[in-house]
Design a protein around this nucleic acid. Structure first.
Lengths: 219, 219
DNA sequence: TAACAACCGAGTGTAAACAGTCGACTTACA
DNA sequence: TGTAAGTCGACTGTTTACACTCGGTTGTTA
């Protein structure tokens, strides 16, 4: 372990593949790897100090997540989002989170879930004066928790597959615009709607939240 | 090209990785690779006559699609679905296809879309006396088209990521039960609802269709 | 100078070899 | 006989080497 120097983009977790995966995901969603940029396997493998084979496994996963787009000869590039695509992404996101809200509404014992959600909002509130990145992070945490609490693994998985695209949308639209959607009040509204058990109301609240979020981003 | 014999599971398309991908997907969703079965990379690579590296890229993709589940030491096995998971999968599916229906409803010029959908239903009708597999295929084609016609690439992509799980659900519940959901009338109802432009009605129709489908499968 | 052919470099597709790890089985010892 | 140490085999994790294809460049010839 002595000679282990951290390669270019901060790795630290489990297998090299997983480390590369999160490093690349971060690099893309942070804009460090700009949209449209061509990815060259040999370059990346050298940057990350891993072999091409290992890298390629990570790239396949990122491709599946929609962060990369494949060109002619298997050439990969960072996906570029236009306004329509951002709206489309948020439309799918709204559909998934609406399902989450509806599912939670139908949960007979949802006190614990409500509590968990309030807790994540408290964290958002505490992060209100923190960096843009941290505020975005706490917002994503809330929405991920929303899906997680349903106990629907497929829903959570689908949402997480979209998470990278969501982050790209925020990056693309501008972090300043992105955080405008993250008012504590709006999130408390969502939880309140779930608390009433009114699935229709919860769905409308989520949809409204997502529509304005997309609007703000592409404005 | 002379010595090229088709390996165990029918390959034929583009890169070896893609060939392996669809071959494995078919093998899993057809039950040829039974749920819970442990996958050994060396075995599979020999079966498919490809190298482990290439195979692993395909496996990562299947893992992301939810067809494989990862055990302790990176051990992969074919995912096993219980009744709750099937219901969960169909709940997500319903959310996605509801969005599709709603999107089509809001399309000012949806005549072409309606026509395309009717055409796929005609194919379903024509396949009514064909094998179970073919009937399922034509049904999937309808629902994929539904998502495709929205022009929302993210929606289509999310649906396709779920497609494998849907097929597994049908396989798991039994093909006979699966085709019970594929009545031509129910599908015409969906299209009719879209044709009226009543998003709420379309959504309800889809949800009802999916709920009964899930009910039938786990019954 | 225009057209064409041979060449070369960049980059992906694919295969084969090497390394580490965990579990099972065996063996030695009290 | 029970238990602990040691060994072996089966896998996955990872790297290195090789093959192929395409696009551009250079050089040759009419």
């Amino acid at each position: 372990m002595a000679g282990m120097t951290a390669p270019l983009l901060g790795l630290q977790k489990k297998s090299l593949r997983e480390q590369a995966l999160s490093a690349l995901r971060t690099a893309i969603t942070s804009g460090e790897l700009a949209p449209g940029r061509h990815l060259v396997e040999t370059e990346l493998s050298e940057m990350l100090q891993i072999s091409r084979g290992t890298l390629r496994e990570a790239l396949r996963q990122l491709e599946q997540e929609g962060l990369l787009s494949a060109g002619p000869r298997g050439r990969l590039s960072v996906r570029h989002l236009d306004e329509k695509e951002i709206r489309d992404i948020f439309a799918v996101r709204a559909a998934l989170e609406s399902l989450a809200a509806r599912t939670l509404c139908e949960l007979p014992d949802r006190a614990h879930a409500i509590e968990s959600l309030h807790k994540t909002i408290d964290l958002m509130e505490a992060a209100q004066d923190a960096s843009l990145e941290e505020r975005i992070e706490s917002d994503m945490e809330f929405h991920r928790t929303l899906c997680h609490l349903t106990g629907n693994e497929t829903l959570l998985h689908s949402w997480q597959s979209l998470e990278g695209s969501i982050r790209m949308s925020i990056m693309f639209g501008g972090l300043e615009k992105g955080v405008k959607n993250m008012s504590v009040d709006r999130h408390r509204d969502i939880v309140a709607a779930i608390e009433t058990g009114d699935a229709s109301l919860a769905r409308k609240t989520i949809r409204a939240h997502m529509d304005t979020a997309a609007d703000n981003l592409v404005a």
